[in-house]
Amino acid sequence: MNKLKKSTIFAYIVVGLGAMIMLAPFYFMFIFATHSNGDILSVPPPLWFGSELMNNIDYLLNALPYFWHNVGMSFYIAIITTALNLLFCSMAGYALAMYDFKYRNVIFAFIMGTMLIPPFLGMIPTALVMKYLGWLNTPKALYIPMACGAMGIFMMKQFITSAIPKELIEAARMDGCNEFSIYWRVVVPLIKPAFGTLGLIVFIGQWNNFMGPLVVMNDMKMFTIPLALRSLQGTGMTPWGAICAGAAIAVIPLLIMFTLSSRRLIDGLTAGAVKG
């Protein structure tokens, strides 16, 4: 009994240390964001908050004159992408869940099949397509192609199937709704929880998107945060304090969302992946 206890305590310690290792980079990111480069480069490095945050941000804004615009771009693109996904995915998911129509199963299988296409395969031609369309350096080059993902359709279909009985749709039809108003007045109000989950997933995905903006944005002003941050690299002496301040700004919205909704986010992501 005693022996068993010892091993369990040991395991708790290992898991706890592991959790600290997982969180340590975030900790240092925040610490470094408040220190000058000189402090960061000293041995041992700082382990507690300093007072240089404002200087670091000043430095950041000097090196990246459009930084706040870049932050705005990230928000703008992520929000539009999210809104479009909620609309299009829920419409498609509704159709696949509630209508009996010819080729429904083929259509559904096809949509699921597109998830197998790895993103890098389209990287080059997409960049060219955007160039021909004249969409380079415009936000729509990022939100239009990502406006309706297969995973979102799948999640919506699953949720609608389980949350809305067919009779409800029929009742609405009897009550004089046309097909779009059934969707808008009956389906949409009832799938708000799924909107929350899908919205978080899409927002985070687009916020973190790096490869997409990398190939379609080359004007500093139109950069999203990840692009802006990486442009700080390799400019002589790396400004670690400023980079960490910028990284913190990129990560804080995600940490807030995660803290508020970790359960829903984790469940949504695993369910989407496992069943999809």
């Binding site: 009985p165 009779e167 409800l168 029929e170 009742a171 609405a172 039809r173 009897m174 009550d175 004089g176 709704c177 046309n178 009956v186 109000p189 009832l190």
Partner: peptide
């Protein structure tokens, strides 16, 4: 005709009340 144009009303087994 669309169900609405038929001027009929239906009561479903599950009632099908709008929960929201």
């Amino acid at each position: 005709l669309h169900p609405m144009e038929r001027n009929i009303a239906m009561v479903f087994q599950s009632y099908a009340l709008y929960p929201h």
